[in-house]
């Protein structure tokens, strides 16, 4: 069963002579456990595509079906519920809440989803421990390194056990080694739990963590190839340096 199905998806900005087709008739099907890397030059429409799949941007035409729900017919409230329960987000600049500690950042989506405070804290701690952040629970984002921030973002994205994780340029603000480590951690966790991941990135090395690599140019899907993910979806992250 597909987690996301994108049918004839297009997005046009502006109108008339000044209109720009950012996404042009894209069709895509992503299954549970898929790790899809979307690549392409700047301005090719990658971020527009991931924003539409994340229900943060309305398409001009076409259809997005997430876990059997047609997003076009959902109200804003239902759309927010869908994002909360079925989608997890990771961003280039981490976007952690600056006033909250690492643990509290992970707790937020859980509390919003109605999980009790006690259970939320327990789950946030468990996730952060899996990501080797057990000693950084009470640190504010400003006191975390880039890699640590992105690992907190991973934990936050995984908190509500979403079916799909959307990561936009997740390694752009990290050094090469740390970026790859964090993505390995995300992809192994997601793969091990049968979650789908869509990564938008320029980083060629992320092909090693992806199962599918899609290339977009001028808003069109021009190529799809196999990634180098080894399909060993182990939950053992002991090899990830702390």
């Amino acid at each position: 069963m597909s987690v996301v199905e994108v049918k004839n998806l297009s997005k046009v900005y502006g109108s008339g002579h000044t209109s720009v087709k950012a996404v042009d008739n894209i069709n895509l099907k992503i299954e549970a456990g898929d790790i899809v890397l979307i690549m392409g030059p700047s301005g090719s429409g990658k971020t527009t595509l991931i924003s539409m799949i994340g229900t943060l941007l309305k398409p001009t035409s076409g259809q997005i079906i997430i876990d059997n729900e047609d997003t076009a017919v959902l109200s804003d409230t239902k759309m927010a519920d869908l994002r909360l329960h079925k989608l997890g987000f990771m961003f280039q600049s981490f976007n952690l809440l600056s006033a909250l500690t690492a643990e509290q950042n992970v707790v937020v989506p859980l509390i919003v989803a109605g999980v009790s405070k006690k259970q939320s804290i327990a789950k946030a701690r468990k996730l952060l421990e899996q990501l080797h952040l057990e000693k950084r629970l009470n640190n504010l984002p400003k006191n975390l390194s880039g890699g640590e921030k992105q690992r907190v973002a991973v934990a936050r994205a995984l908190a509500n056990e979403p079916k799909l994780i959307l990561a936009d340029e997740p390694t752009a603000n990290l050094d090469t080694k740390t970026g790859l480590e964090v993505m390995q951690l995300l992809c192994n966790t997601a793969c091990g739990e049968n979650r789908a991941v869509i990564i938008v990135s320029h980083d060629q090395r992320l092909k090693s963590v992806a199962k599918r690599v899609i290339t977009i140019e001028d808003g069109k899907l021009i190529r799809e190839e196999k990634g180098n993910h080894n399909n060993n979806c182990s939950m053992n992250h002991g090899n990830i340096p702390r």
Partner: peptide
């Protein structure tokens, strides 16, 4: 000042009324 953080909260599923 926190507009972006509120945007993040919207993105992760908080409703406007929250």
């Amino acid at each position: 000042e926190k507009a972006k953080e509120y945007g993040v909260l919207k993105a992760i599923g908080l409703k406007n009324r929250q």
